[in-house]
Design a protein around this nucleic acid. Structure first.
Lengths: 316, 316
DNA sequence: CTGAAAGCGCTAACAG
DNA sequence: CTGTTAGCGCTTTCAG
């Protein structure tokens, strides 16, 4: 370009206060430089980590994040996905709720927009997916509790139908089996993945026929619900009941008996999700890929351990 | 419309699998049915509550949320705001960082896009604003501590330059003054609004010339940082040091000594922000308005209280 | 009430 | 290397 003409244009830009119109740009060339994120758990603390990771990667690429909440409801999730598609996002990241397969995922699969499933990995054959390993970590929690001598180890399981709930429950069963322990039906109670229902589930468990001496809670909210019940009823951790949870959180070390938990690596999950979106954009017909991100076992005191906190990677 | 023609069109829509193109729609009629949110604290837990509230309102209106993180950096915040403006969002919600006035806010004010400031209320004359009351609640925390007989009450203050830090510090000064207490300079230490710096600040305080018997921490992260320091050094709460914090959180009741804290009403803040955006869209030239949302004092045990948790509204 | 045409702000493919 | 023109998919305006 002629340096003179260039300057003339640049001047015009500044004097006019010109700003590009991303809308017109998107219409003209197709491609909106944006990706949609549909989460079923906006209200969950770990959401912040995941979104932060995704946002960081996207803003580095000059792209924008469209965020929507599905409220763990297949219908709303479907509407959200359609809305995102209408907005012509370049890609979609979704943590599918129970029942997604018949609604949102069908629409997504039919569209040609790159999509990746996070956290709840329900369609390995149709979508790229990335999430934590769920099964082995819970089995390891059971191993650990069994190692402390516990035999009646209970599980407060998450919302039935969610992939994570199912996998973690399977891990519990694995753990009990390989430690020669009987996973009596009364030892498993179900909640709705939130604190209140976990507290109710805990009540049922405590009043049940076989009272456990140890317990694993299937996610952070349920751990909190259980802890609140225990605190309210003067049940001491780990003396009266040893406790482990899936999901670590910032305050886990500050609670009365510092929590032993499985920590997920959300930053890596978010980063991987975007990489997968990229890869799919480049080669749309490649075979779908599923990535399981390793977790970390954080041993504090609620399980019965004493001494300083230790950490160990869990490899599947 | 002729019912016959109507049917013909409807049929065409379903057979073609037609979907509206929001991009073209936006270009043609102007107005994108979207609002941008620029937060300096994506990583902060209360962010989830705020964003959830905003998202809920927006999705009810069929609008979409564009989310961006500013990393507490005026430059990045500026770039984000420009990007959002380029995308022709219908409105912008921003929690301004220190130094915004010269960058992002200038751009925003020059644009004709409705904007509202949340949390950090720095420009009452130029923007609509909504956030919690900061000053009186902290003063009330000091009142409460003084009521327990404390005289050397310390403050772990937040990042200098942030409106919230300044207001909360002022509240501390108010409280000390009206209880006839001397706010010795050594009793106030500054952090960067995060846990690690709060822990360092706490160390300085504890090793300082006048050791406090009570303390208020300026936000949730700093409270956590302080708690970690105390736990690591075997300092007991509230026996060795009584503690109160600004910001309540889910696990506050589960920590070793349940935390006495000021709870913000994020749902109302988010809802109000969107209402203000609406109002401004309707009447662009109305005078800027600032709303202060009342907070709640949650009395647990870390302050020295015993017995059940009580709650009281704080009116400015 | 229907069909055709112009234009939203931009890029891409052309002539000049 | 410059200037012009034709769309991107939609709404709006205007004839028919």
């Amino acid at each position: 370009v002629d340096p003179d003409t260039r300057q003339r244009v640049l001047d015009a830009i500044t004097t006019t206060g010109y700003r590009k119109n991303s809308i017109a740009l998107a219409l003209a060339k197709g491609g909106t430089q944006s990706v949609g994120v549909a989460l079923s758990a906006l209200s969950n603390p770990y959401f912040a980590e995941l979104v932060t990771a995704i946002e960081a990667d996207m803003s580095a690429k000059g792209s924008t994040l469209l965020l929507g909440e599905t409220h763990e409801d297949a219908e709303r999730e479907h509407d959200l996905v359609v809305k995102l598609l209408d907005r012509r996002v370049d890609g979609i990241v979704v943590a599918p709720t129970a029942g997604s397969a018949e609604r949102a995922l069908t629409v997504l699969a039919a569209s040609s927009v790159p999509a990746v499933l996070v956290d709840r990995l329900v369609a390995p054959d149709r979508f790229d997916q990335v999430g934590s390993d769920n099964r082995e970590p819970v089995a390891r929690l059971v191993d650990h509790l069994a190692g402390h001598g516990h035999q009646r180890i209970a599980l407060v399981a998450g919302l039935p139908g969610l992939a994570t709930s199912i996998e973690r429950r399977q891990g519990y069963l694995d753990g009990m089996a390989r430690n020669g322990l009987r996973a009596a039906p009364g030892l498993t109670v179900e909640g709705a993945s939130d604190g209140a229902s976990a507290a109710r589930a805990m009540a049922r468990l405590w009043k049940g026929r076989i009272r456990p001496t140890a317990l694993v809670a299937a996610n952070n909210y349920m751990t909190v619900g259980v802890l609140k019940y225990l605190a309210a009823h003067g049940i001491r951790v780990p003396d009266d009941l040893a406790l482990c949870g899936y999901d670590d959180f910032e305050w886990a070390e500050l609670i009365a008996s510092p929590l032993t938990a499985v920590a997920q690596d959300w930053a890596t999950i978010g980063g991987t999700a975007l990489e997968m979106l990229d890869a799919r954009t480049r080669s749309p017909r490649a075979a779908p890929e599923t990535a399981r991100i390793p977790t970390t076992l954080v041993l504090r005191h609620s399980c019965g351990c004493t001494g300083p906190t230790t950490t160990e990677p869990i490899t599947p």
